[in-house]
Design a protein around this nucleic acid. Structure first.
Lengths: 206, 206, 206, 206
DNA sequence: AATGAATGAGGCTTCATTCAT
DNA sequence: TATGAATGAAGCCTCATTCAT
């Protein structure tokens, strides 16, 4: 199987890079490492990518994007309904983020935060991360604001602050997870007690 | 000033490394970069350190430790008092962590999380970070537990979970800070509303 | 136009190479450069040439030869006539050499002298160039000798020396031309004053 | 003798490069070739030069400059005298140019014309060559003009044209020399017959 | 303590060439 | 005929480390 299609090899390279960069970081990763890991030789890397940097961007685009595009749309639709339960929506979001909390999630986290760190010396990466973070922030902000409109979320703290705290805690658990992979992500739902106005349903999470 | 004292130069190397690694990360930093930045030449590095790795450990020990040893002791003493106000203690801790939220804090954050990422390929670093995190966790746990004993902190959520959430949010804000250095750290005090039992709802945050 | 005829493509490759090697030299030229410039892909190069070296020889043979075969024959015939005017013949030769002194001439010059330089490390090229130079030398020598026979060219300097000076000046102007493409080639005709015996001093150059 | 002085090694690198680039040209020359030839290893090249390009410029400056600064000054002084013999001055110039017509001269020629060819893709080199050529042209022009002032050189052909022909023939012989190293450089003095006005001495050179 | 020359390994990239399609 | 994936050698450059001074 010496000659495969370009698309196939390109995908393999991206996948291998994603896996490997979680361990060593992108810089410490050599093209030789990557190509050897997929049973090809160094030289053929350049058939598929113009440079190592281009590979990074491709990995970012296809493997590290925090978009969850699919979910986002469903939720926006759900939110528009009058009867929507914002608290359970937020719990669904958390569940989706931490879905697949196995090896792959850890890989994603290391790779992603590698990139965050890397961003200090690469303008492009920095901008991409900011955009990515902004999208998340906007998305969460929308949910929170809707919750406030519907009288489900407290209004004595302003929307953006609540959003920040939500993002902060999600991101914080990403990091704690890197240190202790056994951590239980569902814990983060506890802060909903704080955000949401206590009608009655304060007991049922986790 | 060709011959400075050994200790002096060693300290300069450590400081310069701390500053520089925030930008480029430790790996991407060359010994030449470091030595040039302090006006010395590459060769003399090895008078002070056995290897580049040793330097890293020294930087960790002297600049990255999250110990806040001084503060920790004061607080433990405070906690032992019957009349202590756990909420204000916790606010003091947050203030201390984010004290000096200027350039230096950013430097610390990049350097520290660089290290976290780096940890995947270095057992020693990994253990150091875990120890560091455990100390923090233990410290916070102690505060929370005391708060519960004194009836100031809710007890329907178990001590470790509350501790995790506290740590998570602190760490999360570190990360958000790297993306948007303008963020307002005092926001994190809002979650105290959730942890602390509403006697009179001390309304005084921020 | 995916399948052009073989000959057609081969010619395109040769032409493109001739153009491109004037800029970058043959070595610095990659097969990819060449093939891309004619809208084909690298792989198909080897349908037409066994190797890059073979291409060089083909370019030499078809584009760099200094033969001016056509002209040479006409001139030899002219020379055999008793009434021939050697001075005007020589002027015609110069005109032919420098005909088309535009972009293409510059291309030729760069490519040709690239080759001369290249010759130090390639025996075949070296021999080809020597042969080429010898043919020219022989050709000029024939003209000069005939001029001497007819009493038109001075005889106090030996035939070969006069020939050398003629060649030298032609070649020299090639080089000057590369440095300053505005140079006026017809200037070289002035040295005819020196070679030719002053009967009436045909004053008519340029 | 493992550790030599920087100056010494740097000079050796430059000399070796000058020698080797005559054979293979600068591009085809690898840093490994150069360093091996002086008994050092590749890595240490960068102790002395920032890049391969910097080496080229250094070689140009120290080994390829056509300045002949020393001679130039002497000649300018000589020219200022009323009694000066411009013809013999020009012969001295030719002698100086072609002095040492052995291996080293050939080396110089190949290296220099390599550079000329190379110039098409390097602006800096191109400018350096142009400057170099201009200096020569100016220098020769000065001699010719002085010869005309003194009534020794013909005035029916304009100064610049005579200068061009002189330069052309010198350069031309450089090239012929590369093809046939046995060529007799003193032949070029014959064209002085053409430039200089025949008082009497028209027979005696070579 | 400091210098700076030297080393050798390793990384990115280019490129002539081969080969299955 | 043409394509494009793959190869492997080679080149430039960086860098941690050693060592004589």
């Amino acid at each position: 199987m010496k000659y495969s299609t370009g698309i196939e090899t390109k995908r393999k390279i991206i996948d291998a890079t994603f896996q490997l960069m979680a361990d060593k970081g992108f810089d410490a990763l050599s093209i030789d490492d990557i190509m050897t890991s997929i049973g090809r030789t160094k030289g053929s890397f350049y058939v598929h990518f113009k440079s190592k940097e281009e590979l990074l961007y491709e990995v970012m685009r296809t493997r590290l994007d925090r978009g969850h595009g699919q979910m986002a749309e469903e939720i926006l639709e759900e939110l528009s309904k009058d009867s929507c339960n914002v608290r359970s929506i937020l719990e669904k979001v958390v569940a989706e983020i931490y879905a697949n909390s196995g090896e792959d999630r850890l890989t994603w986290a290391f790779a992603y935060y590698h990139l965050l760190i890397h961003s200090r010396k690469n303008e492009f990466v920095r901008e991409w991360l900011e955009t990515n973070a902004d999208q998340w922030s906007t998305f969460l902000n929308m949910i929170v604001k809707r919750g406030q409109e519907l009288g489900q979320i407290r209004t004595d703290v302003d929307t953006q602050t609540i959003t920040n705290i939500c993002m902060g805690i999600v991101v914080g658990y990403d990091i704690l997870f890197m240190l202790r992979p056994q951590i239980d992500f569902s814990e983060v739902n506890h802060i909903h007690d704080w955000m949401f106005i206590n009608d009655d349903k304060s007991s049922e999470k986790e």
